[in-house]
Amino acid sequence: MKQFLILGGTGDVGSGVIAALLDAGHGVLAASRGGPKAEALQNRHAGRSFQLIEGSVHDEAAAATLLQGVRARVDRVDGVLAGLSGAWPQGKTLVEWSSADLLAIVHDNLITHFVAAKTFVPIVIDGGIYIGVGGAMADRIFPHYSYNSMIQSAQRTMFRYLDHEMENHRIAIRELIIGAMVTTEHKAKGDDPKYNWITDREVGEHIRAMLENPADFPGPIEHLFSARGVGRSRPVDPASVRAVA
């Protein structure tokens, strides 16, 4: 039985990955900041090979404490999924942001990924994989989403560097860009024709395939557009990116 660590286990992506991994017979450690969603997740998977650890990757100190909690249960893991995301507010042009507010949202949606990677990459076994989840707005321009595009562009570059700088490439470093809206049992699919939709379980099955067979997803940046792509590698070609009005 393989053992996987899920950071952001109560999120839409994390919860789908947990279910897919448990159904496939793997062990799962999930990190969460606690609260009603964490309690519901614990109850949902009671009696299975599932452990919930309270903690965060808000900064290095918090991540170090979380790492201690993980190592109290397992010494190494076969893979890590970082499904981390803060709030994504709307309604401002770029110059309407204050530098302090912009810095805070960059921290919650980018720096947390940096902290998570530097903390938990070392506990992945040789041949394993570390996956961060990102969005598809890095090369697109939408009104009032400047901060989102900026963060996702920086995140994509960060994962390319993490993969490039991994000594001897002993593990795979991947970013999965989800180019679709994710639905759950509590969040119904909308009727806006501009958006693709994919379920949390379909995303979970795709990430399960990446965690189980890293060599099948050469990356370093993988893209999931729709349910048709579940389980298949689709690396992002830097030459193919474009901006849209």
Score class of each variant (00 low, 15 high):
residue 19 A to G: 11
residue 122 P to Y: 11
residue 129 I to D: 04
residue 212 E to F: 03
residue 97 W to F: 15
residue 53 I to M: 08
residue 112 T to S: 08
residue 24 A to N: 09
residue 78 D to K: 00
residue 85 S to L: 12
residue 240 S to P: 06
residue 104 A to K: 10
residue 29 L to E: 02
residue 56 S to D: 02
residue 9 G to C: 12
residue 69 G to Y: 01
residue 129 I to Q: 07
residue 197 W to C: 01
residue 204 G to R: 03
residue 166 M to H: 08
residue 42 Q to N: 12
residue 118 K to T: 15
residue 245 A to W: 09
residue 145 Y to G: 14
residue 121 V to G: 00
residue 214 P to S: 07
residue 27 G to M: 01
residue 36 P to F: 01
residue 170 R to E: 07
residue 184 T to L: 07
residue 164 H to V: 04
residue 46 A to L: 14
residue 147 Y to W: 12
residue 72 A to Y: 07
residue 105 I to G: 04
residue 11 G to Q: 01
residue 173 I to D: 03
residue 171 I to K: 01
residue 119 T to H: 05
residue 29 L to K: 02
residue 73 R to L: 14
residue 97 W to Q: 13
residue 21 L to H: 06
residue 66 L to F: 06
residue 86 G to F: 05
residue 116 A to M: 02
residue 185 E to W: 03
residue 81 L to E: 11
residue 88 W to D: 08
residue 195 Y to F: 15
residue 178 I to H: 00
residue 76 R to Q: 14
residue 60 E to L: 12
residue 57 V to T: 11
residue 80 V to S: 03
residue 187 K to T: 09
residue 67 L to C: 10
residue 41 L to V: 02
residue 125 I to H: 11
residue 108 D to G: 07
residue 80 V to K: 03
residue 184 T to M: 10
residue 176 L to E: 01
residue 234 R to E: 02
residue 83 G to M: 05
residue 170 R to I: 02
residue 45 H to E: 11
residue 17 V to S: 11
residue 128 G to I: 07
residue 40 A to V: 05
residue 98 S to N: 10
residue 16 G to V: 06
residue 188 A to V: 07
residue 112 T to G: 05
residue 208 R to M: 11
residue 134 G to D: 03
residue 30 A to I: 04
residue 1 M to Y: 09
residue 109 N to Q: 07
residue 8 G to D: 04
residue 130 Y to F: 15
residue 108 D to W: 08
residue 152 Q to P: 07
residue 161 Y to D: 05
residue 82 A to Y: 08
residue 118 K to Q: 15
residue 5 L to H: 04
residue 104 A to E: 15
residue 42 Q to K: 12
